[in-house]
């Protein structure tokens, strides 16, 4: 019998894997957002000194991992394994970053849930006693996503109000099996949900049921209530998705008082993002800067962080398929120590 499994979908870590370091590198628009001060590095422009946006995204991911390592005085060679993913076809940003880091590497794809998928896998590997130190990264770039999923960037199109703005940014984490700081206690692995939403400009509505499903499964598996957490944070549902999630929770009489969403925090309302931020980078940069900061300052003790991903592709969109979505959750707890 599995000893670390609770209920159907939740793993309980017994060794408490610890996030020992983290860093975020973001684009200029994110730097001007409400959390602008908190990021480790804000790029002057979206090209990061490269000649393509794809290279710029890869550099952001590499820089964020290097910064996270440097804070603890590590080198990539100190990592036992590197877990990373992004939104581009064949997860090129992650693969090309791993080429530079020269560590054992597992590429991940969970669309915008990739970071949390990475932290879940990191927790499992550490708790299983396979490794001592793991690097986890996730990135997205507004312009690489636009040209892959939507229109050429210079085409004069109007984004609907339900659309979200893909975050340009990358967040990286070093997770270890000893130390002090913020520990991972539980991981809840999500199931694919598909409520028939096929509008690629409304990913919040597509993802909300997945987030709801994972939150419900987590509460059921652990026997906890939403109030047991200081916050339940979702990755990138945006304004609309977040409202839909709250509505779904209200209907099942689950308290919604402490629910928030990274997509609604990353931009201010005058930044014309419409329904908020999205993309792998969204939860990655907001967790590594804003929420890790609040946890380490002791402001929050316990957070349930749910990464949400819309698993669409331009091909399935053209074929009229609906959008399958997924959400993974991880419990972050502050244990004292590391400032």
């Amino acid at each position: 019998m599995a000893q670390k499994k609770l209920g159907k979908q939740t793993f309980k870590f017994s060794s408490n894997p610890i996030i020992s370091s983290e860093a975020a590198v973001v684009g200029p628009m994110e730097g001007k957002g409400p959390l602008g001060e908190k990021y480790d590095m804000v790029l002057d422009n979206t090209f990061a000194g490269e000649n393509t946006w794809e290279k710029a995204e890869q550099k952001m991911m590499q820089y964020s991992m290097e910064l996270a390592l440097e804070k603890k005085g590590f080198l990539p060679s100190d990592l036992d394994i590197y877990l990373a993913g992004d939104l581009l076809n064949q997860i090129i940003s992650a693969n090309f970053t791993a080429r530079f880091l020269n560590t054992p590497f597992l590429g991940l794809y969970g669309a915008c849930s990739t970071l949390i998928e990475g932290l879940c896998v990191a927790g499992i590997l550490l708790d299983g006693g396979f490794v001592d130190r793991i690097g986890v990264s996730a990135s997205s770039h507004h312009n690489t996503a636009e040209r892959q999923y939507r229109y050429p960037t210079e085409q004069g199109t109007q984004r609907p109000m339900t659309a979200q703005w893909t975050v340009t940014g990358s967040g990286s984490f070093v997770v270890e099996n000893s130390g002090s700081g913020v520990i991972l206690t539980h991981a809840t692995i999500g199931k694919i949900n598909d409520m028939g939403i096929s509008n690629a400009n409304d990913m919040g509505s597509a993802m909300a049921p997945a987030a709801f499903d994972t939150i419900k499964a987590h509460l059921q598996d652990t026997g906890r209530k939403p109030d047991d957490y200081d916050l339940i944070v979702t990755g990138d549902l945006g304004l609309l998705g977040s409202n839909v999630l709250k509505e779904m929770m209200r209907r099942e009489k689950i308290s919604v008082d402490n629910i928030t969403d990274c997509g609604t925090l990353v931009y201010s309302s005058n930044q014309d993002s419409h329904s908020g931020g999205s993309g792998c980078g969204c939860s990655a940069i907001v967790l590594s800067s804003h929420f890790m900061g609040k946890l380490l300052a002791g402001e929050y003790k316990k957070i349930f962080f749910v990464g949400t991903g819309a698993l669409l592709s331009p091909i399935t969109s053209f074929q009229g398929e609906s959008i399958p979505s997924i959400a993974h959750g991880i419990v972050l707890e502050y244990m004292g120590g590391r400032q």
Binding site: A208, N243, S275
Partner: peptide, 9 residues
């Protein structure tokens, strides 16, 4: 979809 449509901006 009815819920999502109702809440859509």
């Amino acid at each position: 979809k009815a819920i999502a449509n109702r809440l859509a901006p």
